[in-house]
Amino acid sequence: MKDNPFIRTFLNWDIILDSFPRLLAEGLRNTLLIALLSIVLGVVIGLVLAVLLLSKRWWVRLPARVYVDVFRGLPVVLTVMLIGVGLPAAGFRPFGTAAFGYAVLAIGVISGAYSAEIFRSGIQSVDPGQMQAARSLGMSYFTAMRLVVVPQGLRRVLPAQAGQFVKDVKESSLVYVLGLATGQRELFFIAQEEVARTYNSSPLLAAGLCYLAITIPLTHGVNWLDRRLREGRSVRVIPLPEPDLDATAPVPSTGGAR
């Protein structure tokens, strides 16, 4: 078995076991950190852009539209280079010379473009009657958006957004093109170094397992949340007793004729 070139290349247990401590201690932590910060940044950017995209005024929509089209249209690795190498070279160094901050910025900026479209479609799918009801109570457009429309819209796009989160986790690997200092290396970067050191591809497989350990629970966690929110709304099958009306049968629930 040990002589099988396939197994020797990808499943060298000694090398896998040797690389795991570094992958877990440093790589997994940094991947999670880059991914989490990028996701937060992406959600914030996405929400702002989605609201701008829904504006009635074209000059409010236009910059958001351009942003979304540009950052969805560029290769991720190109954007990472533009932000991670280009910005510091141009003298814009909010994160000094460490690649980590630029990596988060790049992945978050791209994530925001995708999230904007996801959020926009969710918000647009909310019944216009919700906005009208909120406005007729005297809420401003933004208060109605914040309290009534956006929360409902976001819930509907949770599964799509889970896909975006998974993408963010995977794309965090692209920061390797920026070169990371010791202590800031993420999964893929460490795996690459191990491959170079051992002339064996097994560390890539080990890193892959680490990615799956993040992405698969992430997908199912969000789907579980989605199911729970849905079921929270659909227990309506139990008709509620109507008190002190005449002795008619329990009122069947119509659940709204929307």
Binding site: D127, G129, Q130, Q132, A133, A134, R135, S136, L137, G138, M139, S140, V148, P151, Q152, R155, R233, G256, A257, R258
Partner: peptide
Amino acid sequence: VDATRTRIGMVFQHFNLFPH
């Protein structure tokens, strides 16, 4: 407009309660 609407209550055909 917002202040004016607080003086005018509206009830809709499809209720438009906030489901969340």
